[in-house]
Design a binder for these strands. Structure first.
Lengths: 239, 239
DNA sequence: GCATATTTGTCCGTATGTATA
DNA sequence: CTATACATACGGACAAATATG
């Protein structure tokens, strides 16, 4: 539906690695395998909303479009299923995950627990720098009315908050959760209604953290999350 | 090395589902695919320590031992790589993950953040029941000197603590983390040194939670985690 | 309700590149 | 440096389940 997009011009020969710009998070320092690159491409498309929730991933069609074999494609599926972006219905196929209100509430439960805990402790300067950069990116994107990019900046901000927790594993897990969150964002018809009000809230939270008022920052973040959850849930229910 | 163990007697024909008792956490209500069951079997073996850290998973050998094709096996690999139990070294193969001191510290950073936050709030009765059952199981296993099972009970206890957070996604993520933790347990030569001292600590934490002293319970849990981390890290460094 | 077509699930064979003895 | 072993990736085959007429 979203047109055809080859992975790299499918070089007929096997075991070829094209460019592979994105690279996700890559296990260690490996140049990604084909399945990884396929997963990266599909993840990007899902997150951007080019592949809407519920759309089926026909194996036949995708192998043709991406220029990879069915086996490789299925390996990529397993990666994205593990990240909960895809869901497999046995003998029926894999689909872009469709979130309901319960999912949204669950995601925000995780965020409240993890992010608030991470923010409630003295923040490292590096983390604050990244948060500030995210706030700037968000404002810039809002001026351009690029609401997808506002969402990207928002995610970047909260990834930075998570990083305050000081655990690479937590970062990785939360990054996957934020990808799922993009699926939730798509449930809200007009993105600016969702993102615009929360732009200054991030700035406020950053301000409090910079003034070392971590308790207050954490508290503000909690109400932020409560309200964001309410906006999305109401959009789902009212749909 | 650990002998051969067929998955189900490899029925020659394709698309057969054997028994599949374990079932992990299953996406929804699907009867697991072959790759899922293979992943379940391998995960169990890794967690039990039958497949030690660093051992290579030869595709050729494993396909023969499990009676599945290379494609299916590689799908299972992707699942376990996603759970960080296996690691892929490009063009060399996949290996059981080998944890170092940094990994152990990282795991305990996550645990401190998540578990302490989950425990610091009013606990649901159901959660306490599960925690109590875990304590009982731990004591019983200790009487039998079954230290692996003591470890299982310990994990069960802390899974129950995590469940207090009230998020299915968090549970899932932490379950994977605890599987990784079993890898860390294996770094300590004699398990009873690791597990025995922490048996009464769980009971103490449970007691505090049952008396609704959540702040104190969370605090106790934190020192518990600090000490457990120290024990494992010292075992790694002294190795 | 039944026959048929399509798609998934799984296996096998093979070619190629990479690492290692 | 060559040879060997193995991982990577492709393509084709068939059974089984689901969708379709």
């Amino acid at each position: 539906m979203t047109g055809s997009a080859s992975l790299e011009g499918h070089p007929a020969g096997a075991t070829r690695s094209g460019l592979g710009v994105v690279g996700g998070q890559g296990e260690l320092l490996d140049r990604p395998t084909t399945a990884q690159r396929v997963a990266d491409v599909l993840r990007e498309r899902i997150v951007r909303g080019e592949l809407r929730s519920g759309t089926q991933f026909g194996e036949q069609q995708l192998t043709a479009a991406l220029g990879v074999s069915r086996n490789t494609l299925r390996e990529a599926f397993q990666i994205l299923i593990g990240e909960r972006l895809l869901i497999r219905e046995p003998h029926r196929g894999v689909f872009v995950r469709r979130l309901d209100a319960t999912d949204v509430r669950d995601i925000y439960n995780v965020r409240r627990l993890v992010e608030c805990a991470a923010l409630a402790r003295p923040a490292e300067p590096r983390g604050l720098v990244e948060m500030r950069a995210a706030v700037r990116q968000g404002r810039s994107a809002a001026r351009r009315h690029d609401w997808y990019d506002v969402g990207t900046a928002d995610v970047r901000f909260h990834v930075a908050v998570t990083a305050l927790g000081g655990s690479g594993r937590l970062d990785r897990v939360m990054r996957a959760l934020f990808a799922e969150l993009r699926l939730a964002f798509q449930l809200v018809p007009d993105s600016h209604v969702l993102h615009k009000p929360f732009l200054p809230r991030n700035a406020e939270i950053l301000d409090l953290a910079e003034h070392c008022d971590y308790a207050q920052a954490s508290e503000r973040l909690r109400t932020y999350l409560d309200e964001a959850e309410a906006v999305i849930v109401s959009a789902v229910d009212g749909d």
